[in-house]
Amino acid sequence: MTFFSRDRLEEVASALAANGLILRSGFSFGDDEMAPAGLSGFPAKSVLLVGQAGAAPWPYFQRWLEGQPRPIANPLDSWSREVIGGVAKEFGARAVSPSDRPYLPFQQWAMRAEGLRPSPLGILMHPQYGLWHAYRGALLFEDEISVPEPYAAIHLCDTCVEKPCLKSCPVDAYSVDGFAHQACLAHVRGPRGEPCRSGGCLDRNACPYGAEYRYPADIQAFHMAAFAGV
């Protein structure tokens, strides 16, 4: 068995940072777990999660997109795969994406690695970034990697009495009963959905936490267009 050194971990983080991405955290799979395959096809020993905080990757993604010779379906996924795939190749890992099929349990991995819990909107609430963060992929290694255990952070949603994230949507798309997907789509695509199309989800923007990491309106519009197909 080989072990991944702390210096090597910092090198991975530095390689990701060159495109505005961050090494979120990770963990080693237990011997009794059904771990996904690593680069060689044998079960991976460890996973490192790759993501973003705020809009840091956006300038890098835009430059890449402007350099493409023709329109690309799901360009952010394609860019993420290319960047994370390059880092994986450099460090002998297998790169995987949240959109890969069969789907891998990215949200469960994230909760385990970072000690996060879902907000009422389903997005994991981060103690620093609030709802303004994302996971863009992961690196699967056939090495043991020692990553610090997540600290027991306060779940901010438990301290939020007013819950503005459940009161700002015109069609009450989010509630304690879950997400009304079709109602949300109909509203966003309809004549009264312009605020959502141009500035993002009103419920998400109503959350008071991590405001300094909030995506700018043009980025939120990009994501909303991808979600609603508009």
Results as ranks from 00 to 15, higher is better:
residue 1 M to Y: 12
residue 3 F to A: 15
residue 4 F to I: 08
residue 6 R to Q: 13
residue 10 E to C: 15
residue 11 E to M: 11
residue 12 V to N: 03
residue 16 L to P: 01
residue 21 L to E: 01
residue 21 L to M: 12
residue 25 S to Q: 05
residue 26 G to T: 04
residue 27 F to E: 04
residue 27 F to M: 06
residue 28 S to T: 13
residue 28 S to D: 10
residue 32 D to K: 10
residue 32 D to V: 12
residue 32 D to M: 12
residue 32 D to F: 13
residue 33 E to L: 08
residue 34 M to F: 13
residue 35 A to P: 08
residue 36 P to E: 04
residue 38 G to M: 03
residue 39 L to C: 13
residue 42 F to P: 12
residue 42 F to Q: 15
residue 47 V to A: 08
residue 47 V to H: 01
residue 54 G to D: 04
residue 56 A to I: 12
residue 57 P to E: 02
residue 58 W to M: 11
residue 61 F to S: 02
residue 62 Q to W: 08
residue 72 I to C: 07
residue 74 N to W: 10
residue 77 D to M: 09
residue 80 S to K: 06
residue 84 I to N: 02
residue 86 G to H: 07
residue 88 A to Y: 08
residue 88 A to H: 05
residue 91 F to Y: 13
residue 98 P to T: 06
residue 101 R to W: 13
residue 106 F to K: 03
residue 109 W to V: 02
residue 113 A to M: 05
residue 117 R to K: 14
residue 120 P to M: 03
residue 122 G to C: 07
residue 123 I to Q: 00
residue 126 H to C: 04
residue 128 Q to M: 11
residue 129 Y to G: 00
residue 130 G to Y: 00
residue 133 H to D: 01
residue 134 A to R: 00
residue 135 Y to M: 12
residue 135 Y to E: 07
residue 137 G to Q: 00
residue 139 L to D: 01
residue 140 L to F: 06
residue 144 E to Q: 14
residue 151 Y to M: 14
residue 151 Y to N: 12
residue 155 H to V: 08
residue 156 L to K: 07
residue 157 C to Q: 03
residue 158 D to K: 13
residue 158 D to S: 14
residue 159 T to H: 08
residue 160 C to T: 04
residue 161 V to H: 12
residue 163 K to P: 00
residue 165 C to L: 05
residue 166 L to T: 03
residue 170 P to D: 00
residue 171 V to T: 11
residue 173 A to V: 03
residue 177 D to W: 11
residue 177 D to T: 13
residue 179 F to C: 01
residue 179 F to R: 01
residue 180 A to H: 15
residue 181 H to S: 07
residue 183 A to M: 14
residue 183 A to F: 07
residue 185 L to K: 05
residue 185 L to P: 04
residue 185 L to A: 09
residue 186 A to Q: 15
residue 189 R to L: 14
residue 190 G to K: 05
residue 191 P to M: 11
residue 193 G to E: 05
residue 194 E to S: 14
residue 195 P to R: 05
residue 196 C to K: 00
residue 200 G to W: 00
residue 201 C to V: 00
residue 202 L to E: 02
residue 204 R to A: 12
residue 208 P to W: 05
residue 209 Y to L: 02
residue 212 E to Q: 14
residue 212 E to D: 14
residue 214 R to M: 08
residue 214 R to L: 05
residue 216 P to Q: 10
residue 219 I to V: 13
residue 221 A to E: 04
residue 221 A to N: 07
residue 223 H to W: 14
residue 223 H to E: 06
residue 224 M to D: 01
residue 229 G to T: 06
